[in-house]
C-alpha cells in the first residue's frame, strides 16, 4: 500500500504573521518556518498504518519554496520512507485551487492508495485542500478523522464533525484528513535522524508534473488578495454581567466561537 502524507511549512505558530506589501502574499521571511503542527498527526497516523500493515510505503509530500524541504526531512526523521518536494518559482502565490491541482498531479505521479493530511494549515486555515484533492483524484474523501482503520481495500473512519461522531466506510483509494485527537505524534529518534539522511528525496518542478506556468502560481489562481490592512490590536470585548446565569453564558460564548 502506498500512503502519501502531506506536510506543509508554515510560519512559527508563536510569531506574528505578516503579508508582504504589494502582492499581499505571506511574508515567509518574517518568521521561522516550521512544520504545520497539524500535519504531524497525519505523519504519525501514516506511520501507525505502516506498522500495522506490511508492504506499506509512506511518502511525505510538500509543495513550497526551497526551505520547505525541511518539513519533508522532519517526516523522514519520524519514519516516512520517501520524500517528494514540489518546488518551482512559478508556484509562488498559488491559491488553494491551484495548490490542489499541483499536489494532485504530484500524488498521481507518486502513485497512491491512501492520502493523509492534517485538518488544515495554521497559516491560511482554509481546510479545503483534502476535499479538493479527493475531487481531483477521483478518490473517496473522509475528512476530520479521529480514528482510521485500513482493512484490505477498505477504510473505516470515525469522523468528528460539528460535535458529533460519524462512522464512515470507503473503498481505497481515499483521501483522509485527521484531527488532533487521533494520536500523539512521536518525536524522531536519533537513529531516525541518521537514517533520514539516506532516504530518497525527490524534487519535482511544475514542468515535471506537466503543468504550464500560466496554470499555476498567481497567474493560475482564481483568487487574488487585492487589499489587506493590519488587524487592530484592540479586539471587540464582550462583558458578561452576572445575573445568575453568567457561567452558562460564558460557555455559550466560548462554544459560539468554537473554543469548546
Amino acid at each position: 500500500m502506498r500512503v502519501v502524507v502531506l506536510v506543509k511549512q508554515v510560519p512559527d505558530t508563536w510569531s506574528p504573521k505578516r503579508l508582504r506589501p504589494g502582492d499581499f502574499l505571506l511574508d515567509r521571511a518574517a518568521a521561522d518556518g516550521v512544520v504545520n503542527e497539524l500535519d504531524t498527526y497525519a505523519v504519525e497516523e501514516a506511520l501507525r498504518i505502516k506498522e500495522k500493515h506490511d508492504d506499506t510505503t509512506v511518502i511525505a509530500l510538500t509543495m513550497g519554496p526551497p526551505p520547505a524541504v525541511e518539513v519533508v526531512r522532519k517526516a523522514l526523521q519520524m519514519g516516512a520512507d520517501e520524500g517528494v518536494h514540489v518546488v518551482d518559482d512559478a508556484l509562488a502565490g498559488s491559491d488553494a485551487m491551484v495548490s490542489s491541482l499541483v499536489l494532485a498531479a504530484a500524488i498521481e505521479r507518486i502513485g497512491f492508495d491512501l492520502v493523509i493530511t492534517g485538518v488544515e494549515s495554521t497559516d491560511a486555515r482554509m481546510g479545503v485542500l483534502p476535499a479538493m484533492l479527493a475531487e481531483r483524484l477521483g478518490a473517496a474523501q473522509a475528512t476530520l478523522a479521529a480514528e482510521v482503520k485500513v482493512d484490505g481495500r477498505e477504510i473505516s473512519v470515525r469522523r468528528l464533525a460539528g460535535g458529533r461522531e460519524f462512522d464512515v466506510v470507503a473503498p481505497l483509494p481515499a483521501v483522509v484528513s485527521v484531527v488532533e485527537k487521533i494520536n500523539e505524534p512521536r518525536y524522531p529518534s536519533f537513529k531516525g535522524i541518521m537514517a533520514a539522511k539516506s532516504k530518497p528525496l525527490t524534487t519535482l518542478s511544475a514542468a515535471d508534473l506537466g503543468l504550464d506556468s500560466n496554470r499555476v502560481g498567481l497567474a493560475g489562481s482564481a483568487t487574488e488578495v487585492v487589499a489587506a490592512e493590519e488587524r487592530s490590536a484592540e479586539r471587540a470585548r464582550v462583558v458578561i454581567h452576572d445575573e445568575g446565569d453568567a457561567a452558562a453564558r460564558i460557555v455559550e460564548f466560548l462554544a459560539s466561537r468554537k473554543l469548546l
Binding site: P188, S189, F190, K191
Partner: peptide, 18 residues
Amino acid sequence: RMGLFGLPFPEEYGGAGG
C-alpha cells in the same frame, strides 16, 4: 524511544550509535 539513553553506545548494544 528517542534513543537519548543510548547516544554514546553502538547499536549492537541497543545504542543509538552517536
